[in-house]
Simulated assay, not measured.
Amino acid sequence: MNVFLIILGVLALIVILSSFVTVQQGNVAVTTIFGKYNRMLFPGLNWKIPLIEKVFKKISIQNRSVELEFQAITVDQANVYFKAMLLYSVWNQEEETLKNVAFKFMDERSFMQALVRTIEGSIRGFVATKRQAEVLGLRKDITEHVKEQIDKTLEEWGFHLLDLQMNDITFDEVIMKSMAQVVASNNLKAAAENEGQALLITKTKAAEADGNAIKIAAEAERQAAQLRGMGVALFREEVAKGMTTAAKEMQQANLDTSVILFSMWTEAIKNFAENSKGNVIFLDGSSEGMDQTMKQMMAMNKLMQTKMEK
């Protein structure tokens, strides 16, 4: 009798203990009675009907993430490998949504398989219309395309897409090497073009500098020639004034003014001899030559006197 009571007490204790269920924070439990949905149990200590009511599934209402890897083929038959990160959560905590999450799939493995295949199919359908060279530049477009399609599907399953990121897009090793070669050749081409542009600019600047130097030198030469001309003109003017004054003084002293021309002629010969640097000047030293020279100087003297009288 005592043994029976002990056994009965143990069974009663087991039944009492099994009638309490603890649900962790961030989770919701779904219960069934004889295989049919009954109710939801929320975080904390919950009571259920012993032996009849069972916890069918505990659903996490927290954000969940999963990393995905899959392959697609472009229109030009290039294999593309994707690595993505998917962030999702239960749509809301309403009873119908939670029931959909609990009973839509047999287990978590079936759900993940369906999720991966759906995303993979969406990406494959998009990539199949693009060329290999376009795929890397369409990362954002691929992500937006998948988000638009997968979000609708997840809502039907009771989930909500929070974020989708394409972390890595790669190709076969041969294609990766060829792409690297293309990038390297483009960089070399750009470097050569930049070097050519730099050389062209250097030569252009040098030509401009030479042109400016020539202009400056020409302007300086022009100004120097102008100053030399002014100097010669002033020199001649002063010489003419001096000769006029000397001629007037000699006339007042009743002297022949041709002596001035003869003096200038002899001074010129002296200057040639003193300042000569190798040049040869031939002068007629004969009596006929001297006579002709004196006649020329007298003619010049008369011309000067005529100008003075005027």
Rank of each mutant, 00 (worst) to 15 (best):
L261V: 01
L255A: 10
T293G: 13
E69G: 00
D172A: 00
I281H: 14
G231V: 07
K203T: 01
Q93K: 13
E53W: 06
Q223F: 09
D141K: 10
V239N: 11
A29E: 08
R236P: 00
G289A: 02
H145A: 06
F103C: 09
I260H: 01
A218E: 15
A268Q: 01
W157E: 13
K248R: 14
A102L: 15
E221T: 15
K147E: 13
L115D: 10
V127R: 00
N301C: 08
F4D: 08
F20V: 14
I14H: 04
Q223I: 12
I16F: 15
Q181M: 04
A72K: 13
F159K: 03
V259L: 06
L162C: 07
I175V: 02
N167A: 09
I123D: 09
L98G: 03
A217V: 01
A225C: 12
S185A: 14
G137R: 14
R228T: 13
T244S: 01
A299F: 08
L5D: 11
S185C: 02
A191K: 12
I16D: 09
V15F: 00
G125L: 10
F4K: 04
G44I: 10
N186R: 14
F34R: 15
S89E: 12
F34P: 00
A84Y: 11
V28I: 10
S185K: 14
M176Y: 03
A128F: 06
A78C: 06
F111K: 11
I61E: 01
I150S: 01
N92D: 15
Q113M: 15
N46Q: 11
L11Y: 07
N46W: 06
S110E: 13
N27P: 01
A128Q: 02
G278M: 12
T97N: 14
Q223M: 13
E53A: 06
G137L: 10
I16M: 13
K295V: 06
Q165K: 12
S122D: 08
F20I: 13
G158I: 14
D76C: 06
F103G: 05
N27A: 09
G211N: 11
K83A: 05
E219H: 14
Q181I: 00
L86W: 02
M308F: 03
E309T: 02
F103S: 13
R139S: 10
D168H: 08
D210C: 02
L199C: 05
G242D: 01
L8R: 09
D210V: 06
V10H: 05
F262V: 05
A247D: 04
K57G: 02
V10K: 00
A217T: 04
V55P: 11
M112F: 07
Q296K: 14
S110V: 09
V28Y: 04
Q25P: 03
N279W: 08
F20H: 07
K140T: 08
F272P: 02
M176K: 03
A246N: 03
A128T: 02
A184S: 08
K140Y: 11
T204R: 01
E238V: 03
M300F: 11
S263C: 12
K48H: 09
T257L: 01
L87H: 02
A133L: 12
G278H: 14
A191C: 03
A224S: 15
G26P: 00
